[in-house]
Design a protein around this nucleic acid. Structure first.
Lengths: 238, 238, 238, 238
DNA sequence: GATGAATGAGGTTTCATTCAT
DNA sequence: TATGAATGAAACCTCATTCAT
């Protein structure tokens, strides 16, 4: 009669307690997801590590996948908060007439430090984003895009001010993002940097060099079949 | 992570047949692993897509994981082949006194094109490497390191020849690798480039800029606890 | 990526084997469903009784519910087969000018014997029909309606021939059906009849009496709110 | 079927409060049990609909099953009350020398109206009786038997008075009961009757016809193996 | 060598019931 | 007495793997 009744809400009523519980479980899950991956981690393991019974986990989350999504969104929020602060800071410093190069470097540093703080989640993103619903994936990627957009804005401001040459701002921002993220996702290749600040100081010239490079303007034309390069990919593309 | 294998060898005797079968199955698996992930793909699906019975798959591979490993190693081999060619080419051109900058650009281009050809597997690497045994992971990463080493050698040659300033060659190579790989793993952000060559020509100045940047020399001291930066990671680190 | 992939077909390929297996499992399930009910019966129990492993059950059926539906439909088919025979027989005897009363009694007897043969399933129907999808329920009830329609036709033929008075043929058929079904669903109250034929011979006069009764013609007007009799039923009505 | 109860008494001391609470919960449960079935209804849903907490439900009932039993018994009581009234009325009218046929019809009508009032529970009985303990089942069925016995007595009185022919009074009562219950359990086939009284007036001639039918006397011999008709039923028989 | 049915361990999820607050 | 979070057993179902044919 009632087919497919899905429990839509968490069982725990008290908002504060609910969030605390979620945090606790998610924290336990994060570690396990990272070593071993999302699919290889059982809810039983998560519960155990969080010091709860299996059933209790489902009082806080309605599904295992929700735990993964929670991890991503919570960090997304964290990133967006930082972004907001950065924006404010950027406007403030701009008004003070600070050198665009310094502005970029400040912005970039704070992005890289964010990556460092959330290193585990950055890696998780690269690994397990595809385990989410397409809708959920999009939500997360939109956040990422907003981060990149900010770098683009800072770069564009530099162009306006004559600090950087015009060019493919979008590409430059992409490169900068990727180099920051590599601190997390390719950390094994950067083992000789002890801390993010070591990496950053080594990277400084390279990063600014990218910004100052005179590249071609972008060909902002939406290609009809952007992906028509001979591949027979079936659906995906993450 | 570690598991006990029952049957250690494949059931198929004829070497040629065996390899053909493996290729066929792996090809089918590759697509499925990419859209859907390794864990969500069942052996039955793979068998079906390969036009075989479930049982047959296990005549060619001893486990599902072996299929994944096969995919990685086969591509590793492919990459190492390319690397060997590149090395030969590099020596030849070096002997002809070709400009180190051109040498680097040639090497880099061919690496990027390799990434492009194996785009699906590059993504797969970022996503599913952790699904392998630690030993297997290491084997794959060693290949990756060899690729980076080649770039480092080319860069070093440029330094010797006075084309590039001295500096952290290791870091530069890392950056170059990451930017090439981003064509695969962050392709959604590069949608406005139709083909790898479009991306490459836009990237050329940036890449060479990185090579020519005057960075600090590396502090080649192996840190005792390179990872002692406050994290409580348990085991892994990919 | 692929969300909600439902295994749509049974795993067993060989048609004959598949059917045999289904029969075997369904037979085991039938008994268990009857004592204890559908929900209280676990798949493990079914498997055990059928002499199979749990997994194997799901090679034959895609879900537990399918077992229940299989039971219902298979008996539905069985009933429809009998119905077809009855129809043929009816036409044959009608052509021979057999007395309508005898025709009715023959038809009724064979329906009652069918009920007897499928007694367990008749009970199951009363108990567990609601455990099916609404669509599936409808399919089963349509079969039941066809059975009743046949009785109505036989009754109508008797009316034409002057053997029975006109009246609410639909109601009469309903009464006859219910009395036959009561042999299954209220068997505890009929314990003093050893066999269906005992019950039938005792019931003969009553059944024919019903047919011969002079009832009012039916008020075949579709009532606007047929159910507006003060109840606050929420949805169902089986 | 049989289970171990932990707590044997309800937690609520005040008798009045206890009963009020039980009624409230049972009322909520009744609707849910009907649409959806006993097993598919969770205690949480019941609590929610009753406007209580889950814990409170278990202050009033010691188990979910007890709710079901409560529903059945409360209606059983209701039925027995009506029965008592009917008995009194019957004696009164008998003393007044009322026509036995009228007596039967009055008694039958009031039974049918009872069924109508408790339609939901009649259906529930057919569906979920088996979810009770065997002992509980028996208690409920005994009540049902008492109801039938009354009809038998009324019929017997008619026989004594020469209004009905002798015959299988037990069978006749059974038939009458079943036809009344069909208003509830096979309501879908009687949709063209808006109200129970419509059904009753259409049924009147049939019902009285049954009473007046000249059937065989019953063979009241307890059969040794009453069920020896080839079935392999294991335990139950509802 | 190929097949595919059988297996059973283990996955996620539900839910009646308990019990500290 | 009321609450609702915690529990853990047990449910359904999936799937890699085996093995008789």
């Amino acid at each position: 009669m009632l087919r497919k009744k899905r429990k839509l809400t968490s069982q725990v009523a008290d908002e504060k307690r609910l969030l605390e519980g979620k945090e606790r479980i998610a924290a336990a899950a994060a570690g396990l997801f990272l070593n071993g991956g999302y699919h290889s981690t059982s809810v039983r393991e998560i519960a155990q590590k969080a010091g709860l019974s299996v059933g209790s986990v489902f009082n806080y989350f309605t599904s295992k996948e929700e735990i993964l999504f929670f991890l991503f969104s919570r960090n997304q929020e964290r990133a967006q908060d930082t972004l907001r602060e950065q924006r404010a800071e950027f406007e403030r410093l701009k008004a003070q007439g600070v050198d665009p190069k310094d502005l970029l470097w400040l912005a970039y540093q704070s992005y890289a430090r964010l990556i460092d703080e959330m290193r585990r989640y950055t890696v998780l993103g690269y690994q397990e984003l595809k385990s989410l619903t397409v809708a959920e994936q999009r939500r997360i990627l939109e956040g990422e895009e907003r981060l990149q957009q900010f770098l683009e804005e800072v770069l564009s401001y530099g162009v306006e001010q004559g600090a950087f040459p015009g060019g493919d701002v979008n590409l430059k921002a992409h490169c900068l993002m990727v180099l920051a993220q590599s601190w997390a996702v390719r950390h094994w290749a950067l083992k000789h940097f002890t801390k993010i600040d070591d990496y950053l100081s080594a990277l400084k010239k390279i990063a600014l060099g990218i910004a100052e490079e005179r590249t071609f303007a972008p060909h902002r034309i939406a290609m009809v079949a952007a992906d028509a390069n001979g591949y027979d990919f079936e659906k995906s593309e993450v």
